[in-house]
């Protein structure tokens, strides 16, 4: 049983976004984090100092660990931002801002 089956979900048609250039399928209503999780991706940011990978931690917009760059806008919280068709999602390095 997966959660979609458990809740007898009939999602609207899936669409495609990219993560670091690779195509990822997403469902309407998902956040960026949900789409990445569903594709088996658990980290999409590296930290400023040590360059360590991070992904979802609090899941409700409080911890800012899941920051990601979406359509060239850095520091978006993946757990809050809705994923939209054609989104270009990139792993965020450091501050997310170009020097």
């Amino acid at each position: 049983m997966n959660p979609l089956e458990l809740t007898r979900a009939r999602p609207e048609p899936a669409f495609t976004v990219t993560f670091d250039g690779r195509e990822v399928e997403a469902l309407p209503g998902w956040t960026v984090a949900a789409a990445l999780w569903a594709a088996g991706i658990t980290s999409w940011r590296t930290t400023r100092r040590d360059g360590r990978p991070r992904g979802i931690f609090c899941g409700i917009g409080v911890c800012f660990d899941c920051l990601v760059t979406v359509n060239d806008r850095p520091n978006q919280r993946a757990c809050l931002v809705p994923v939209r068709p054609g989104d270009v999602i990139r792993t965020q390095e450091g501050t997310g801002h170009a020097d």
């Binding site: 458990l6 809740t7 007898r8 609207e12 469902l27 209503g29 998902w30």
Partner: peptide, 13 residues
């Protein structure tokens, strides 16, 4: 669940 997911039995969770 987000409406786009069409969950017909959201109460299961």
């Amino acid at each position: 669940p987000a409406p786009g997911l069409g969950a017909r039995r959201p109460g299961a969770l």
